[in-house]
């Protein structure tokens, strides 16, 4: 309720009317805003500042080096390698859960017998921490006692068994499989929710018109899921560009940099090599990529909605 304030001058009256009108709004937003400004906005600005220095984390003065760190980005072979892996990660790590999640959601769409069991199981890996996922899958791939090689051996496919995480051409995909295993449950339940809203009348009509199962799925179901697909894709993409946890916990970027992604590279530069200035620059590379991806996604969605 707005107080009626009799100001002595117009300006003070304006300020007081302003305060009276907005007081509640200000006070409600303020605690969150302060915390956010100090621990998010300020460090973000600092990241930009640090990227123009060669600071090593210790010295009191931070030497300004201009664009030297940015120039270094272009000649950095390890950055190129890491970006390449990140790109593979984003593509495979998005498509994998999307396809498997959609398949499982469609299979359970009509809630066949055992629905709850299946749903419970498919979502379960989603509640695990990445360290647990990394240890469990590290064991699965273990050449000495891992169940993957033992399983292959026992069904006569011992030609396929190998040191999965030790082979530079396979390691990234081996880690991706673990990540997809964990992430699919999330995509699956979101699709399951999305499918509840797919119009059954339209599907009936398509059936009457003689459309087969694939045509119904492709032309009736998928378009109605477009919004859900968009959201899930965006979440997977944005998470993928900054992926760190499962890679770090499983391979630390090895063997021979075969699983190095930009986030693990940044961590090492910052916190094991003490190259804070350059690491800040690398962190901004991740930031810019994530921002571009997010903005592109928002644009795309707005266009889709209009």
């Amino acid at each position: 309720m707005a107080d009626i304030v009799l100001g002595t001058t117009a300006r003070r009256g304006g300020a007081r009317r302003h305060w009276a009108r907005y007081r509640a709004g200000y006070l409600f937003v303020l605690p969150a805003f302060l915390l956010y400004a100090v621990f998010m906005i300020y460090p973000l600005v600092q990241s930009i500042y640090l990227s123009f220095t060669d600071w090593n984390g210790v010295e009191a003065t931070k030497n300004f080096v201009g664009l030297a760190n940015y120039r270094r980005l272009f000649g950095d072979a390890l950055l190129r390698v890491s970006l390449g892996h990140t790109l593979i990660w984003v593509v495979v790590g998005t498509i994998g859960p999307l396809v498997i999640g959609l398949l499982l959601a469609v299979l359970l769409w009509r809630r066949p017998r055992g629905f709850t069991l299946f749903r419970t199981a498919f979502f379960m890996p989603q509640v695990l921490s990445s360290v647990v996922i990394a240890i469990v899958w590290g064991w699965i791939y273990n050449p000495v006692f891992g169940i993957l090689n033992r399983g292959l051996d026992s069904v006569g496919l011992d030609g396929l068994s190998r040191g999965w995480l030790g082979d530079p051409s396979l390691a990234l995909y081996a880690v991706l499989v673990a990540a997809i295993w964990a992430e699919t449950g999330f995509v699956f339940v979101v699709f399951l929710a999305g499918l509840q809203n797919v119009s059954k009348d339209l599907l009936e009509a398509a059936t009457v018109d003689g459309a087969n199962a694939w045509q119904r799925f492709r032309n009736v179901t998928v378009p109605q899921l477009a919004n859900v697909v968009n959201v899930v894709t965006a979440l997977l993409l944005i998470g993928g560009f900054s992926v760190f946890d499962v890679v770090f916990a499983m391979t630390q970027g090895g063997p021979a940099n075969a699983t190095e992604v930009i986030a693990t590279y940044t961590y090492k530069e910052a916190f094991t090599q003490n190259r804070i200035g350059y690491a800040a620059t690398l962190s901004l590379v991740i930031t810019v990529i994530s921002l571009v991806a997010s903005v592109a996604f928002i644009r795309l969605r707005e266009r889709g909605e209009s």
Binding site: N142, P143, V144, R162, G163, W164, G166, D167, P255
Partner: peptide, 11 residues
């Protein structure tokens, strides 16, 4: 025997 890159020192 095993792929050394896949085997930890402890293993």
């Amino acid at each position: 025997g095993e792929d050394p890159n896949a085997l930890t020192y402890d293993d």
